[in-house]
């Protein structure tokens, strides 16, 4: 691919490669990409008071959400049901309570409550979200993957069919010439090493490293009911058709089994457990080192 650019947004490093298109100038597409990410953040950032998420956190009411919210909330609801409430956008309240707030106070509140149950406090019928009380939502389990897909869709509009969009390890890859794109699977214990490789052709991958150097009750995935982080998994990768799904399933795999998720979704995965034993689905495109 003959064009590439790097930037930082939504708290991560982006690296994008693509083949130049006749229908749009490279400079123009870079601007569009950045603007689109900014819009996503304006809508859904937990750290902006004027975002939808920020407003819902302040006041109960009925909110008409942007059209792109539906893909996220619909998938959240499915995973919420499949995982019996473990994957939930309502984890936002817990994240704030443990100190992950917009000021990085990192100071846990005295009394950390479990996340509320979806049907007790919220309903969603696209495009309307009804909050029975102020609700701190958080789309972190799938938001990064989703914005990668949104950028991929933008490329398609401009007839860019060969691209690689990498937002901090969540990657969408499209190729018209069936070129393999190799992605190293970072060793959860040592970032200078990889424990395997995924080989993508027109797929997305997302990864999540769970207990990396977490030495208390929390890492970035928190059980909404137990209010502590699952500890049995060191790292997970999911390969799927969309980055949204890949990202969301990495979180879901901390709370349920791949066998259960396989009944609902088409994906391939690698799980590395805390003892460094690993499970790779049979059709995972790639290999592990052992």
């Amino acid at each position: 691919m003959n064009e590439s650019f790097d930037f930082k947004a939504i708290g991560t490093s982006w690296h994008i490669e693509f083949n130049i298109s006749e229908s749009i100038a490279t400079e123009k597409i870079i601007l569009l990409v950045k603007d689109r990410i900014e819009l996503f953040e304006q809508h859904y950032s937990r750290f902006r008071e004027d975002s939808f998420v920020g407003r819902i956190a302040q006041q109960a009411g009925v909110y008409e959400l942007p059209a792109d919210a539906e893909n996220m909330l619909a998938l959240y609801r499915r995973l919420y049901d499949i995982t019996e409430g473990k994957v939930t956008p309502l984890i936002g309240e817990v994240l704030v309570a443990v100190g992950y707030d917009k000021d990085y106070s990192l100071t846990p509140q005295q009394d950390i409550k479990k996340a509320p149950l979806w049907d007790d406090v919220m309903s969603y019928n696209a495009p309307l979200l009804t909050a029975q009380r102020p609700l701190q939502l958080d789309f972190g389990a799938l938001g990064k993957g989703y914005i990668v897909d949104i950028i991929a869709a933008l490329f398609q509009i401009y007839d860019i069919r060969d691209y690689m969009i990498n937002a901090g390890g969540d990657i969408a890859y499209s190729t018209t010439i069936q070129n393999v794109f190799s992605v190293g699977l970072e060793d959860p214990a040592d970032q200078t090493k990889i424990i395997g490789v995924a080989e993508l052709i027109n797929k997305s991958i997302a990864g999540s490293s769970g207990n990396r150097r977490a030495w208390n009750k929390y890492h970035h995935i928190i059980d909404p009911e137990l209010v502590e982080s699952p500890r049995h998994i060191a790292a997970v990768w999911v390969v799927a058709d969309t980055t949204l799904l890949a990202d969301a399933l990495t979180t879901a795999l901390f709370f349920t089994t791949p066998e259960i998720l396989k009944q609902y979704f088409d994906f391939e995965h690698v799980i590395v457990y805390n003892d460094r034993s690993a499970q790779k689905s049979d059709n995972f495109p790639g290999m592990l080192y052992s």
């Binding site: 690689m164 901090g168 190799s182 190293g184 060793d187 970032q191 990864g207 490293s209 990768w237 080192y289």
Partner: peptide
């Protein structure tokens, strides 16, 4: 047969990669 014996890490530089995926970079 999906379970693998213990994984080992290889140097990231030992193979040509397009990207690396792991925990969030920042």
């Amino acid at each position: 047969g999906g379970y693998q014996s213990l994984v080992v890490g290889k140097s990231i530089d030992s193979i040509k990669l397009g990207a690396v995926s792991g925990s969030s970079l920042t």
